[in-house]
Design a protein around this nucleic acid. Structure first.
Length: 265
DNA sequence: GGTATTTAGATAGTTACATCA
DNA sequence: CCTGATGTAACTATCTAAATA
């Protein structure tokens, strides 16, 4: 009840827009007009910055229509002024108008629903979430438009909401997968480092052992022992690859994610 | 058949609200 | 109560592929 005056203005404006949208057309996705989301006060929701570039058909177009032929700059500027006033308030308003998420259930099915019931941020009920999850398990995207409509009807949500939910869900899945991948690679990296250290150590030990057990005249000249820079294996420049002076047996269970030893080897 | 335009759906990034410790 | 962190619904911008003119 407080502040209602201001909010009312807002709502009236929204409704105006919506009706013009109805006349306007259409199903242009980029415009986000088609579904008439209650939250769809695109022109008003400058909370994302009115300065952002829009599609040609976006607000500019709508407002031009509203404000007559004005077109061009005129339309744009009036749009900005209106928008900038209303922007942030809008969400706030909505959050005060509706109090519970269950109200969602009262919403009409999508497209013809331009009732701009101010809308609090929606929280899906458990039932809704689990149904969506179930659908997501089967298909991570809403293949046919029909499926979206059906789900929406079933959940008593607007198709746009279902669509957004799937978008966000895919993003979450991807993010989680990225985290998992990151952890996995991190572990691999650590393992590789350990392995590398261990091999270095082993090499040093073998070198030392060899030096101490061989008489000086039998010791190999330093040039005959070489180490591959990428795989760190010891090789003998004078012998073939499979007759190395020291055979370093790879760890049988070690998984190397970069499964190709260097081309040089 | 090649080209331009429209449309619908996807992703990435962001914002703002709700909730909880 | 206040506050910061977190989760998530909703948004914008952009890209792409299919359909259509």
């Amino acid at each position: 009840m407080v502040n209602h005056g201001v909010y009312d203005n807002n709502i009236i404006l929204d409704l105006t827009l919506s009706s013009s949208m109805l006349q306007h057309n259409t199903t242009k996705k980029p415009c986000n007009i088609p579904n008439f989301d209650p939250s769809l006060t695109l022109a008003l929701s400058g909370d994302h910055g009115i300065t952002k570039k829009k599609h040609a058909c976006d607000h500019g177009g709508l407002y031009r229509q509203d404000s007559g032929s004005g077109g061009g700059g005129g339309g744009g500027s009036s749009f900005i002024s209106v928008a900038s006033v209303c922007v942030k308030r809008e969400r706030k308003v909505k959050s005060e108008v509706i109090s519970t998420t269950s109200e969602v259930e009262e919403e009409e099915d999508d497209d013809d629903d331009n009732s701009l019931n101010g809308r609090k941020k929606l929280r899906l009920t458990k039932a809704q979430s689990s149904l969506l999850e179930e659908a997501f398990k089967h298909h991570s995207s809403l293949n046919p438009q029909k499926q979206k409509q059906e789900l929406a009807r079933e959940l008593k949500l607007r198709p746009r909401q279902v669509e957004v939910w799937f978008q966000n869900r895919r993003a979450r899945t991807k993010l989680k997968q990225t985290e998992v991948d990151y952890e996995y690679l991190k572990k691999c990296c650590e393992t590789l480092k350990e392995e590398n250290t261990r091999l270095h150590k082993e090499l040093q030990e073998l070198k030392a052992l060899k030096q101490s057990t061989q008489p000086p005249y039998m010791q190999l000249p330093a040039t005959t022992l070489t180490m591959c820079p990428s795989c760190k294996r010891i090789g003998d420049t004078t012998s073939s690859a499979n007759t190395r002076p020291f055979s370093i047996t790879p760890k049988p269970h070690f998984f190397n994610p970069f499964n190709n030893p260097s081309a040089a080897c």
